[in-house]
Design a protein around this nucleic acid. Structure first.
Length: 572
RNA sequence: CGGAGUGUGGCGCAGUCUGGUAGCGCACCUGCUUUGGGAGCAGGGGGUCGAAGGUUCGAGUCCUUUCACUCCGACCA
């Protein structure tokens, strides 16, 4: 390809709203173009080439693992979503609209329903299983706040796969196979990633793992162990139960249950100060409003240790709500609660609560008494299983649940997510097959996603410098760029054209910068666009030499013109 | 949804307070010069000033309404 003919609108200007390197360089390098804000992007020729590279690698590995590519309708009937119960649950991210006959449709944000629908009409027997179908297709999610370029757009390209099995063991086998397959895809792309345990979110199902590309700019917080391979999204991270501070003999707190007058003591810090006690022995009440289907709202209280923090995703799951939102003091009072003095005894009607599982069977605790200016001391935790759940956010320094290692936080970009779904969709959608005994059973399912367009951003987040993109060999739009320093010099032009022809002949993807520009802008564009290798044909041609530049590190080597082809080929 | 902003040529902005011929930089087009780190000179094209309504002899500027986008937060594939 000739640069002079290719639409690569590079700019010096940093886009106004861009803060992340990937966003800045993908726009400046002429890969993508924003469409009137709002999380929509056009892919320009260079961006499209990269996208196709990534897509092709995913396809190769998936096909090799026995998956089959399909292409489902993007516009999907709302009726299917009502069948699965997600029409409401998915919330505002689901873009809904009506056609001319006033029938309801949604733009697919993910395609479980569509795929189950396809399979339930075509697969009838266990002999046709297992089956793993996938597509690489545009998705639309009406994100609350799209940002960071391709990282969180509203329209994006995603690989979504769905597998169907006759039993849970076979689904587990496929889940493991997909974990390996995804790992190979990300390895081939040259990414440094980590597989972590995750929350299943709106997709549902029992178990799930996320593939996180490690980058400071990642939106997800992940918890990792410093001595074993344990890693988890903060939303699903576990820890060894927190131990009480070590006390000298007879100094551990002991108290008899009683209500204590504590005027003005409404925070954990104040309470710890007031009783001269470690917050470990205090119970913190966190109030939220839980939203359910059909506009139902409930006040919920979460009780955790004074030195812990609430993990909202866990809390949301614990009360099976669609969403948790903040609740005002007025609303709490209206519900009969006393902010600053809330506890789980003598709760008003209609308020639901959960307690952190680590508190179970603990005693000698201090908690709000549910009346103004009083705390109860000497609280013993009730032994009622359904009130307990994992609610806390793992903190750096907590102990690993698998070994004695220390946990810490790091940031990651979620580029893949695999789920064991079980019968979450097949059952409500009535998708069954006949087993060996001729009995109808719902499929055991798995679902597997890769953010294809997000991967471009993830690659650049991990591979860039202060001058621009550094594409990994597998993802680069071209393998080599030839820069003719001055196209008006016949000798330079001829040498450049000759190498261009030779490389094309050899099947190398090559970009020839034959623009009538000066050297500066050409060099800057090379660095910005980030093709792995450049050959500069310029001044040194007089000595029979050209220069090879490796983009990653910008190391330059002079080589003789007659060995150029070999020198380039061996660096590919 | 809460808070804060911004809408003027393709992009980035000034002009708005104090109403009076729409401007600057970049980009673009033509010509000449230049050619190893985002060139110089000369000439040129392009704007319903987010939209609607109002005040006024006159509105980018003042008033009302509205829409969109961005940032922080909340939330989230």
């Amino acid at each position: 390809m000739r640069f002079s003919k290719m639409l690569i609108p590079t700019t010096k200007e940093v886009p106004n709203d861009a803060t992340l390197p990937s966003h800045i360089y993908l726009v400046r390098g002429g890969f993508i173009q924003n469409v009137g804000g709002s999380g929509l992007y056009n892919f320009l020729p260079a961006g499209k080439r990269v996208l196709d590279k990534v897509r092709a690698i995913a396809k190769e590995e998936l096909d090799a693992a026995g998956c089959q590519e399909v292409d489902l309708a993007f516009v999907t009937p709302a009726a299917l979503w009502e069948e699965s119960g997600r029409y409401e649950k998915y919330g505002k991210e689901l873009l809904r609209f009506k056609d001319r006959k006033a029938n309801d449709f949604v733009l697919g944000p993910t395609h479980e329903e569509m795929m189950v629908n396809l399979v339930r009409h075509t697969v009838k027997s266990y002999k046709q299983l297992p089956l793993n179908l996938y597509q690489i297709k545009t998705k639309f999610r009406d994100e609350i706040r799209p940002r960071f370029g391709l990282m969180r757009g509203r329209e994006f390209l995603m690989k979504d796969g769905y597998s169907f099995h006759k039993d849970a063991e076979d689904m587990q086998r496929e889940f493991d196979l997909m974990e390996q397959t995804y790992s190979r895809i990300f390895e081939r792309l040259g990414l440094d990633f980590r597989i972590v345990e995750a929350d299943s979110g709106a997709i549902g199902g029992s178990r799930s793992k996320e593939f996180m590309v490690l980058a400071d700019s990642g939106e997800d917080t992940i918890v990792v162990c410093d001595s074993c391979s344990y890693g988890a999204n903060i939303e699903a991270a576990r820890r060894a139960p927190k131990l009480a501070p070590v006390y000298a003999k007879d100094e551990a707190p002991e108290m008899t249950r009683t209500d204590f007058h504590t005027p003005g003591v409404t925070t954990i810090d104040a309470l710890a100060e007031f009783f001269h006690i470690d917050p470990h022995h205090l119970i913190k009440a966190v109030a939220k409003k839980a939203l359910y289907d059909e506009g139902v709202e409930k006040i919920v209280l979460f009780f955790i240790r004074g030195n812990d923090a609430l993990e909202e995703t866990k809390a949301c799951n614990a009360v099976e709500a669609n969403e948790l939102i903040d609740v005002s003091e007025e609303e709490l009072r209206a519900a009969g609660l006393t902010p600053g003095y809330m506890g789980f005894n003598a709760l008003p009607e209609g308020v639901i609560f959960r307690m952190d599982q680590e508190l179970r069977s603990e005693g000698n605790l201090i908690m709000g008494a549910n009346r103004d200016a009083y705390h109860t001391i000497g609280v013993q935790m009730p032994d009622v299983s359904e009130h307990y759940a994992d609610l806390i956010a793992v903190q750096p320094g907590d102990v690993c649940p698998h070994c004695a290692g220390t946990l810490s936080h790091t940031k990651g970009i979620e580029v893949g997510h695999i789920f064991q779904l079980g019968t979450r969709y097949s059952e409500p959608l009535g998708a069954t097959f006949l087993d060996e005994n001729g009995k109808a059973k719902p499929y055991e399912m798995g679902t597997y996603g890769i953010g294809i367009s997000r991967l471009l951003a993830a690659i650049i987040e991990q591979h860039h410098d202060e001058r621009g993109c550094i594409w990994t060999p597998a993802s680069a739009p071209f393998a080599v760029e030839i820069i003719i320093s001055n196209v008006k010099k016949e000798a330079e032009k001829e040498a450049g054209e000759a190498l261009y022809a030779q490389l094309q002949e050899a099947g190398v993807e090559v970009l020839l910068d034959d623009r009538p520009e000066r050297f500066g802008p050409k060099m800057s564009d090379f660095e910005l666009i980030g093709i792995p290798l450049a050959v500069v044909i310029g001044k040194k041609l007089a000595d029979g030499q050209a220069e090879i530049i490796v983009r990653d590190g910008l190391e330059r080597t002079d080589v003789a013109i007659d060995t150029l082809l070999d020198e380039v080929t061996k660096r590919l």
